[in-house]
């Protein structure tokens, strides 16, 4: 029987998490399933908006969707560890370790399965950056600054730095920054550059992972997945992995180019060097949150995230 899977993404369709994944995935899956599986593709949140994925996928509104794992904090509190300062892994580490069969992937896959979703690909789109109209010179620079955050975990980090986490719709961030509704916005580098937040801000602060990162995934409705034949299930997983490897590498290579684009626009870019003075300063300031995370999350998970 022919299968047709619906796949939904949100955010800019030009973002590498979409543009470097979906076409590859579609083609690979067609080949690997020998034409058994075709796809129906929806972009820009027209089917499922970002924050609704955690109910829409288990409930089968679409078969597969892009998701920010931190958006699952309403049912799986453990996901917020990925956005916490405990997470200091590099994108290269993620490239090699957020794969089926590796502990962190399997841990969250099991968690999502208990909610009715299967993780078919997991990746690091890069640590979030702060597009701001002020310069971040140290961990105290964010004090009292209204900063737009995108999820629960990111809000907690900003709060720990003394900033005022502000919730606003994705569409309002550009104008919010421009008009000073918020002084800065935390978000993925790809999105910040794609949505041209640098046009309306003077500075970009690149924490480089000292404030956690953005782990995204493609997830599939569990019933739909399990109704596929074992061969087709394998085709889905293999295609997703291959497309994801391509996209993850693309994302890694793209980071420098994106920062250059911001510099070229005449904006000041402050990069936190790993284990440099700025890094240590932030690490110290975030220590209470890190300690809290250490005790709040299950010990086995903490170990997976922090051990070498």
């Amino acid at each position: 029987a022919k299968e047709r899977l619906s796949i939904s993404t949100w955010g800019s369709p030009k973002h590498y998490q979409v543009a470097e994944f979906i076409p590859q995935f579609e083609k690979l899956l067609k080949d690997k399933s020998k034409g058994e599986i075709s796809m129906k593709i929806f972009a820009g949140g027209e089917m499922v908006k970002q924050q609704f994925v955690p109910t829409a996928i288990p409930q089968g509104t679409v078969d597969i969707s892009l998701t920010l794992l931190d958006n699952w904090s309403g049912t799986i509190p453990e996901v917020s560890i990925l956005t916490s300062p405990l997470w200091t892994r590099s994108m290269e580490w993620s490239r090699d370790n957020l794969k089926p069969g590796k502990p962190i992937f399997d841990y969250f896959d099991a968690k999502l399965r208990s909610q009715g979703a299967v993780v078919i690909a997991m990746f690091d789109i890069g640590p979030p950056v702060i597009s701001a109209n002020f310069e971040v010179t140290g961990p105290d620079s964010l004090a009292n600054m209204p900063i737009r955050v995108y999820s629960k975990g990111s809000g907690e980090v900003i709060q720990a730095l003394g900033g005022a986490p502000t919730v606003m719709g994705v569409g309002d961030v550009y104008s919010g920054l421009q008009r000073g509704t918020v002084k800065g916005a935390l978000g993925g580098l790809g999105g910040a550059v794609g949505l041209k937040h640098y046009e309306v801000t003077s500075n970009m602060f690149v924490p480089n992972g000292v404030m956690g990162t953005l782990i995204h995934a493609y997830v599939m409705n569990k019933d739909r997945f399990e109704k596929l034949s074992p061969a087709l299930r394998k085709a889905v997983m293999d295609s997703a992995l291959e497309a994801r490897n391509h996209m993850q590498q693309f994302a890694i290579d793209k980071q420098t180019a994106l920062l250059d684009q911001v510099r070229k626009a005449g904006k000041k870019v402050t990069v936190v060097e790993r284990d440099g003075a700025l890094w240590k300063g932030f690490e110290k300031k975030l220590e209470p949150l890190t300690a809290e995370a250490r005790s709040k999350y299950p010990a086995d998970l903490v170990k997976m995230v922090t051990s070498n």
Partner: peptide
Amino acid sequence: WYALSGSILSATMLEIPM
């Protein structure tokens, strides 16, 4: 019922039971 049985909270800092 789905939100109650799954104890679903809003994925925000406020964590309201949905």
